[in-house]
């Protein structure tokens, strides 16, 4: 989970990510940042994120992003 916060902080510094549940809805993460985030997640956690998973529910909070990572690792995609 801390790794998610580190990645977010590196991609877009100066934002308080803890406790946020509206990262996509509030446009804190725009589509270009999301692509950068996905690239980092795939590298760090050795997963492949399908386009179908790029929905606000999976990216609105650090917890949701972590849950997505865990689910994709479990599926072994």
């Amino acid at each position: 989970m801390d790794a998610i916060l580190d990645i977010l902080e590196e991609l877009k510094p100066g934002v308080e990510y803890r406790g946020r549940t509206d990262l996509v809805d509030s446009r804190e993460l725009d589509s270009l940042t999301i692509i950068a985030l996905v690239a980092e997640l795939e590298d760090v956690f050795d997963i492949a994120v399908p386009a179908a998973e790029i929905v606000p529910e999976n990216l609105n909070s650090p917890e949701a992003i972590w849950a997505l990572v865990c689910r994709l690792r479990e599926q072994g995609l």
Partner: peptide, 9 residues
């Protein structure tokens, strides 16, 4: 990590 994806996008 930031500029690379922006360029590739």
């Amino acid at each position: 990590g930031r500029m690379g994806p922006a360029a590739a996008s």
